Amino acid sequence: MFLWFVCCLVVARLISASDERCSKPPQVDNSIFIAMKEEGQISGIYSCIKGYHLVGKGTLFCNAFDEWTVPTATCHLGHCPNPVLSNGKFNYSWPVKVSDKVTFMCNDYYILKGSSWSQCLENHTWAPPFPICKSRDCDPPENPAHGYFKGRNFTSGSNITYYCEEGYRLMGTPDQQCIDGEWNSDLPSCELIQEAPKPTAPTKYGKALLAFQENKDLCKAIQDFIKRLTETGLTMEELKHTLEMKKAELKGKKCCPNIVAKKTGHRDTLKNKFSSWF
């Protein structure tokens, strides 16, 4: 059955038999062809009759050779396309009519993702969209940058564990489980471990200040020593000589305990002055 109607829109004018320059359009069974002329361009569209739905592109144009472009449209029985569901089954009445509903169910070891039903609408489409049947097993997991996982079984209920390369720390959930075709946590990431900044070398001023702080007691001892030296009225040379004598005396006692060195004159005087120091 093929009907050819010529109509006009507000911006188009009716194509008369004398004005028509294009040949008869190709036939599409169970359809109506509507042609129009607008701004010198002749076009046409196929519309399926009631109980059929359009599959393909239904719009044609008359080219410069006064020929219609080849149509890709066909009109199939049923107001909406037949439902499809891989790895599952459904029940519906054929041919499909407006407002008809279809229900879906998945095979064993598959889980339904989407709506379990759909309805044929006036515009020849199904709503909600058809669901899919997804395996209960999970797809192989991804590896984060600078990371990896351990585990070879991806079936439902199996577990894997994520690790990071040396120098990186794991951010997220390390242990994940396959539940009804989906891993139960988001993919973790591996974050670079930042090294502690190295201390800056102190300046000359800093070194001097540090040395002064570490030797506060030494500085005070030197100040006390110079003060006591001034009070005795002795010079540094005399003190040096006394210290050398004290050192020799200690060595003599260590090696020859029975020999006692005699100290007379100037040496005894120095000893008396510094007796409280030793």
Rank of each mutant, 00 (worst) to 15 (best):
Y168G: 04
F212R: 10
P202L: 09
S189T: 04
D186L: 11
C219S: 13
P199F: 10
T200N: 11
C178F: 01
I222R: 09
M236E: 13
L170D: 07
L187T: 05
T242N: 11
P174F: 03
T203K: 02
T155H: 00
K150V: 10
N184K: 04
G252E: 14
E237L: 06
E249P: 03
K220H: 12
C219F: 13
Y163P: 05
E195I: 11
Q213I: 02
E249I: 03
P199I: 09
C190Q: 08
M171L: 11
Y163G: 06
N153S: 08
G252R: 12
G206V: 03
E214S: 10
L210V: 01
T242A: 14
T203S: 15
L192N: 14
E238Q: 12
K150E: 15
K220D: 12
N153C: 05
A196C: 07
E244D: 10
G181F: 02
I160S: 00
Q223N: 10
Y205G: 01
T232S: 15
A221I: 05
L192S: 14
C178S: 01
K240A: 14
I179Q: 05
C219G: 13
L250Q: 13
P199A: 12
Y205V: 03
P197S: 14
Y168T: 01
E191A: 10
G151L: 01
L239M: 14
W183G: 03
C219A: 14
D186A: 13
M245E: 12
P199T: 06
C164W: 02
R228N: 11
L210R: 07
E182L: 01
G167Q: 07
L187V: 02
D224Q: 10
Y162K: 04
E191L: 13
L218G: 06
Y162S: 02
D175Y: 06
I193Y: 06
E191G: 02
S156T: 05
Q223I: 08
E191Q: 15
Y205M: 04
K246C: 12
Q176F: 00
Q177F: 04
E165Y: 10
L243I: 15
A201I: 08
